[in-house]
Amino acid sequence: MQKNMSDTVQVKGRSQASAQDKRHTFWKRISRNWELYLLIAPAFLYFLIFHYGPMYGIQIAFKNFLPARGITDSPWVGFDHFIRFFNSYYFWDLIRNTLTISLYQLIVGFPLPILLALAFNEIRNGWFKRTVQTVTYAPHFISVVVMAGIIVTFLSPSTGIIVKMIEWMGFSSPAFLTDPAWFKTMYVLSGVWQSTGWGTIIYLAALSAVDPQLHEAAIVDGASRWRRIWSINIPTIIPTITILLILNVGSILGVGFEKILLLQNPLNMSSSDVIDTFVYRTGLLNVQYSFSTAVGLFNSVVNALLLIAVNQVARKTSEHSLW
């Protein structure tokens, strides 16, 4: 009995000591590396304040937001806004447009920077390489509003330079701006023109990590240039590709809103209206904040689920994943 007691006491004492130890080491770890924690603090605070803080406002998706009562005191309505959205006339159109534009963009826009980066990597002439890179980066710096203006001007049926060129070659030009069938192509291809060059940067960085000895050894073994790209360069950047693909899929319901809004008109609406433009219209223009927050929340939840799912798949099939 006594022995037992002393045992328990001992055990208790040990566990207390270990908890103290843990706390102790935690603070010790922090104080030992305080410079690193200081370094990360601004980023940590940024996310806390600007990305987690605002989530407090999400609750208005389940409320009837009245500005005078504020976020906290507005009355609860449960899932009413979600039900209204799911029953809305445009629900399926919005989902379809958002998905097809995103997938189209992903399928066309995702591989191109990879190909371009592999090509850049093969250029040996420094001057030529720099020039081509600068030329392909340049469109990235055009703002969305100007970009939309350029698209509309170039594709205008009466004065557009592209339309004139098509007509000059003897074809009749499609109504790019107003034909719903052309909207997605116009959107995706102009995006490719604008962002492919910029997208190569991250792959070029990854390619610079290739060990030159591998190439030397391969050349000695008589490997052709194609062979080396296929067997050395691509495997090196596969982790980068996987991570970027996961991130891209994670934002599949979040297509670039400004450009779509600026290119939208009543005629192409049937293929250009996406969740984000719908949120803008109902939220900011028709002042239905709660409803549009509900739609935005739905969008984010779907995105988060997709991100998790794709990450899961990537982890199962390869060793690369976000977490």
Partner: peptide
């Protein structure tokens, strides 16, 4: 880019 923007409505008001 898109994923940062989804709650902009509520964040502004907050």
């Amino acid at each position: 880019k898109g994923s940062f923007r989804t709650h902009s409505g509520s964040s502004t008001s907050f």
